[in-house]
Nucleic acid binder design. Sequence first.
DNA 1: GCCCAGGTGAAGT
DNA 2: ACTTCACATGGG
Length: 309
Amino acid sequence: MGVPRIETCRDEVIISGIEPFDLKETLDSGQAFRWNEEDGVFTGVVRRRIIRARQVGDSLVLLGPACDEGIRLAVDYFSLDVDHADIERRLCAMDPIIECAVRSYPGLRLLRQEPWECLTSFILSARNAIPLIRRAVERIARTYGDPIVEEDRVLGGAGESGDGVRYSFPTPGRLASADVLDIVKCGAGFRSQYVKAAAERVASGDIDLDGLRRLDYEDARDRLMSLRGVGEKVADCVLLFSLGFYEAFPIDVWMTRVMRYFYFGGSKVSTATIAQFAREEFGGLAGYAQQYLFHYARKKLASELRGLE
DNA sequence: GCCCAGGTGAAGT
DNA sequence: ACTTCACATGGG
């Protein structure tokens, strides 16, 4: 594959040469929780910046005035530097089931999210529903984060009356000094204490999230699991969605259902058995396999899988 | 009212 | 090691 080609015209930046790429499915695949869609335009907050984007053909179009830093941010966030065609090819060669999932959603990417926001989001995800997770993350940002004033937004919002203001996700330090009861008010429920405790550990430097990249998968995972509210599944989500550990294979209720259905003849299996199978079947691409199977399960198999229990 | 939602920790076999 | 249960909150 070639390097992504970047072309600036007026108030748009067109990034091409990135196929396969599917913006909609990627942002709707349960990785990130701060994106909204309106008329094909997706708006989200990434590391203190607002990104507005839409897909035209195989290209990603960024809306707003061109800015090198913003372009670099988007390329990194959407992993546009990854040879995704090669990844899909290798997955399809593994077995006909994963091939089917990949062919159903070509261009489904793994994002590179900001680790602290990713960790908090998935602590909030435990025994929770996606719309409620989204709302809690947004309320936490609105309560503790900073309003983002972007040239981008000023230019695009000629008749804007203040409602569309977005907020950055708060730093660990800011959440470490929060009152737990105020975090509860954001809708975080029993997970509020976990969020605050994690913020304290990260803010103090006891846990260095970016530093985890230098550890091997097992050690990084153990380190994350020393946080209360972070078990195997949440740890794997953070490793996969923000730290580039593509061998991580988060197993939740959906993955349990779809793996049983496809690979274990519908019989009951433990997460340990599923995890071991995934390692052997998908190896270093287990995380990608997980994302295709998870998305396929939720979008195409929901009714069939619910009845299995 | 009741059940479930991208689980985890603690206590019990 | 494996099983059971509580945990806040809100939507179907």
